[in-house]
Design a protein around this nucleic acid. Structure first.
Length: 885
RNA sequence: GGGGACUUAGCUCAGUUGGUAGAGCACCUGCUUUGCAAGCAGGGGGUCAGGGGUUCGACCCCCCUAGUCUCCA
């Protein structure tokens, strides 16, 4: 049975049991503490913990998941995959153990004709938590599983909790027996390789208290509302049903593995090491495909780094298989074709996905090539010192600084007859890991506890009235100060206010929160910030300017009209610029983030190279022409599905409700899903002026602009600057650029000429100076102060020229000049003088000491100096004296 | 978020006890010669990423900023 077929049967089965089919959430988790959606239940966590009321009693999903914790194990075992799909069914305070168990059993064992998987019941084993007699009874009575195939396990294996106080409970797992060829008899307790876990049923039954680890915490009592959370690993069931050995060989993965083998000229199954590499390629290509599909782009931090790592590991594995040419185009196409039955979006987005992957492949191939140069050097160094191995430091340097993978280093070193010091390398890696972990730990401790919002959120959502009005009547439903619920706020307090409804826009979708006041009977609160700490709940951070306020108070929310106009202009401008960007660059230039507030906007978008000045200008022109055309801006609510067929741009990394708001500017010209506030016609944006474009990392660019009056101000200040320049340079503005360029050129030419003239002038003195040389012992000595000079170069040139003039004799040229408030002193000696034991360096040192400074250099020429101008005579005398010796 | 490295002529890069910035390619001029990356001679081209500090003197040492590469969480 194909994987897509199992998936379809799953959803059909639970739909027939009144479950709401919930589409897979993005791999980018909404939970900020999670990098990715790592389990099927992740999107349902707020409902499980009661932070947000569940919109349905029963739900089912097939959730895309990514886990990279065990990335090193990929390909070596049957079970580790970085990407997998989790089939889940969930109950929120509705059915419990009995139904959960009987559904699971029925789905697995009923005939294919009846929509089940028709697994042999004799091959299924179950485990239960040791004290959960209730579940044992249900398995025996409802599913007819004999007691000998029900095994009890302790807390470590069969008790679920989040690791923190909150919901917890026993779980029960279903295993499939692969037969004696895979290991010994005795159920999962004896051999988890032969008996493969396919389904975990979690019964959220109890409230747990403080404690660490998996089994050291207190059970506080039963939960008022019990939940069911189950997960069936789609890949595991697929590989069992397709009669293959592991998840890399199922229909959604195998084609990539086969293609990789073909490209490498290898036969799968012929060599254990090669097999691991082929599985790594197949796994990583699929994971990267899915992650890029969800909008993650390779980068050096967080999620982006995971994708980069997956892609680079795939390239590395191919290279170890002997393939050096680029291969992502073929491999990604194969993976897309294998996955598109379940994820049609991959097909429509494939151009973008492939380009992202191929760009990264090219970048890494470049990195590998430059790393090879460094590696060659390290190998040569090791060989010349007769070492038998590359040092751990070298291997680490290659990996850490040049991005050269260790196993490639190993292979290449071996070919050169060298080992590598793995032990030292590993210890260096551990040091780096520890450093990063310590840092992360420090940062995490500042994360806020959201539980304080739970009780207010359960009352209902905060109604947002701000689309239609700036002022709204509201009632205070909650007050929070210093993270604690309070009854009342007094003058001077800074706290959070929760209302039943509000006209204040909370920061989201890139738009900054509204500014204004909340007023009431004798009370005035300045709104500092507005956030949505929990979905549906708006929290106003305020400063109490006057009066006091209590739960139940009637108030009025008053958004500053000026602020809102600016915010609307900036947000609409962001959409216009985005549309202009896509019109000019093409649809690949997709927004990856944005921020806007009155007068300012910035837009991050996927693009791999800097925009030329001409392109920037074109984008700016298209933007401002769209503003001038006075396009209508409209907002309408529709279902996600409708919005998609409508062609609205949905941004990755953002999650949307069932009903979404679509903002259109000029009809189809700009269609985006967006909850922000907008102007009603494009002309109201006024003006957009781009102020900068920069990289925010590989593959991503940032465009910044001023909007409305601020754009005018920015242009006006540039105009003022130009006016100042035309005035001081005395040319019309059209000739300004040319004038500046020619002025700079003239200046440089003049400086050069001046320097050469002064040099000529100085050099003209040479014969005279040579003539005037004093004889000190056997040596001719010239001592000359040439007065103020621009640079030490002049002095040096003169000293050198003079020395050259006297080269045939034993001679010393000593030239002093004054630069700023310091003396520059240069001493040059001829060859004969040096042979007589005279060193420029020593002479300069002695003389400079007298001048209150220091100096030094080589025997033939040296430079020094100091601040004491009056001591020059003494310094000259010292040199003379020193030569005499 | 935390580390490591890089930034020198149009391009690719050298440049250590801190003491006058170099090579190859490209460019210009001349000669030679007709070709397969032509040869010879000469020449132009540098804010040594930007800013600050230490020093008589900084491409070099210290600090800050920016850009690029890279590893780790």
């Amino acid at each position: 049975m194909k994987t897509a077929e199992i998936r379809r049967r799953w959803l059909d089965y639970f739909a027939s049991k009144d479950h709401e089919i919930v589409p897979s959430a993005s791999l980018i988790s909404e939970d900020p503490t999670l990098m990715f959606t790592v389990a099927g239940m992740v999107p349902f966590i707020p409902y499980m913990t009661g932070l947000v009321p569940a919109p349905y009693k029963r739900a089912t999903s097939v959730q895309k998941c990514v886990r990279t914790l065990d990335i090193e194990e990929v390909g070596k075992t049957t079970r580790h995959g970085t990407f997998f799909q989790m089939n889940g069914n969930f109950s929120f305070g509705d059915y419990f153990k009995k139904e959960a168990i009987s559904y699971a059993w029925e789905f697995l064992t009923s005939s294919k004709a009846d929509g089940g998987l028709e697994l042999d019941p004799e091959l299924l084993w179950v485990t239960v938590y040791k004290d959960d007699d209730e579940s044992i009874k249900i398995w025996r009575d409802v599913a007819n599983v004999p007691l000998e195939r029900i095994q009890k396990r302790g807390m470590k294996d069969n008790y679920w909790s989040t690791g923190q106080p909150g919901p917890a409970g026993p779980c029960s797992e279903i295993y499939y027996d692969r037969g004696p060829a895979y290991g010994s008899e005795g159920g999962p307790e004896a051999d988890e390789n032969r008996y493969i876990e396919i389904w975990n049923l979690v019964f959220m039954q109890f409230e747990r208290g403080q404690g660490t680890g998996k089994d050291s915490f207190e059970i506080l009592g039963e939960l008022p509302s019990k939940n069911i959370d189950t997960g069936m690993g789609l890949e595991r069931v697929a590989f069992l049903m397709q009669g293959v050995d592991n998840l890399y060989e199922i229909d959604e993965v195998r084609p990539v593995l086969d293609l990789a083998a073909k490209l490498a000229g290898k036969t799968y199954g012929a060599d254990a090491d090669d097999d691991v590499r082929l599985r790594v390629v197949a796994d990583h290509v699929r994971s990267a495909l899915m992650l890029i599909g969800d909008g993650v782009t390779p980068a050096n931090d967080a999620r982006g780094y995971v994708v980069r790592r997956l892609l680079r590991r795939a390239v590395r594995a191919m290279r170890l298989l002997g393939v050096e040419a680029p291969v992502f185009k073929e491999l990604f196409t194969a993976s897309k074709n294998a996955m598109k039955a379940s994820y049609p979006g991959l097909e429509t987005d494939f151009e973008r996905i492939l380009r992202t992957a191929v760009n990264e492949e090219e970048a890494f191939l470049r990195t590998l090539n430059s790393g090879l140069l460094v590696l060659d050097e390290e190998i040569a160094k090791a060989k010349s010192s007769k070492a038998l191995a590359l040092t751990g430091d070298s291997v680490f340097l290659l990996h850490d600084t040049y991005g050269f993978p260790v196993d490639l280093t190993f292979e290449i070193a071996q070919e050169a007859g060298l080992e590598i010091d793995r032990e030292k390398f590993t210890s260096l890696m551990n040091i780096q890991r520890q450093r990063a972990k310590d840092d992360a730990k420090q940062k995490r401790s500042t994360n806020a506890d959201l539980s304080v919002y739970g009780e207010f959120r359960s009352i209902g959502v905060t109604k947002f009235t701000g689309y239609d009005e700036l002022v709204s009547a509201a009632k205070v439903i909650g007050l929070i100060r210093d993270g604690l619920v309070v009854k009342e706020l007094k003058e001077g307090d800074v706290a959070e206010v929760l209302l039943d409804e509000t006209s204040f826009y909370a920061e989201s979708g890139g738009q900054d929160s509204d500014s204004g006041f909340i007023t009431g009977d004798g009370v005035s609160l300045e709104v500092l910030d507005v956030q949505k700490p929990v979905k549906g709940l708006v929290s106003h951070s305020v400063l109490v300017k006057r009066g006091s306020i209590a739960i139940g108070s009637k108030v009025s929310t008053e958004v500053s009209a000026d602020w809102r106009l600016g915010a609307a202009q900036a947000h609409s401008a962001t959409h216009v610029v985005h549309a202009a960007l896509r019109q000019v660059l093409g649809p690949q230039a997709l927004q990856s983030g944005s921020y806007n507030k009155p007068g300012y906007m910035r837009l991050d978008f996927s693009w791999s190279e800097a925009l030329s000045q001409a392109t920037r200008t074109e984008i700016e022109e298209v933007t401002n022409l769209a503003i001038r055309q006075d396009l209508a801006v409209s907002a309408q609510f529709m279902s996600v599905k409708e919005a998609k067929t409508f062609g609205a741009v949905a941004l990755f990394g953002e999650t949307y409700d069932e009903s979404v708001r679509v903002i259109q500017i000029g009809g189809p010209w700009s269609r985006e899903l967006c909850g922000g506030t907008h102007v009603s016609r494009s002309s109201q944006v006024g003006l957009v002026s781009i102020i900068g474009e920069a990289s925010v990392g590989s593959g991503s660019r940032r465009l910044e602009a001023f909007v409305g009056f601020e754009a005018f101000q920015a242009l006006a200040s540039e105009r003022a600057l130009v006016a100042t320049l035309t005035e001081s340079l005395k040319v019309p503005r059209e000739q300004l650029a040319e004038k500046i360029q020619s002025t700079v050129e003239d200046l440089r030419a003049a400086q050069r000429k001046l320097a050469s003239l002064s040099m000529e002038q100085l050099k003209s003195k040479i014969p005279q100076l040579a003539q005037a040389a004093k004889k000190v012992g056997e040596t001719k000595v010239v001592l000359e102060d040439i007065g103020p000079v621009d640079s030490a170069d002049l002095v040096r040139e003169l000293a050198a020229a003079l020395r050259d003039k006297l080269e045939s004799e034993s001679a010393v040229a000593v030239i002093a000049g004054v630069s700023g408030d310091k003396i520059i002193l240069i001493v040059a000696t001829t060859k004969k003088a040096r042979e007589a034991g005279i060193s420029s360096g020593i002479l300069v040192k002695e003389a400079s000491a007298i001048l209150g400074g220091g100096g030094g250099g080589k025997d033939d020429i040296a430079q020094g100096g100091g601040p004491e101008l009056k001591k020059l005579g003494a310094a000259f005398a010292a040199i003379e004296k020193s030569i005499k010796r």
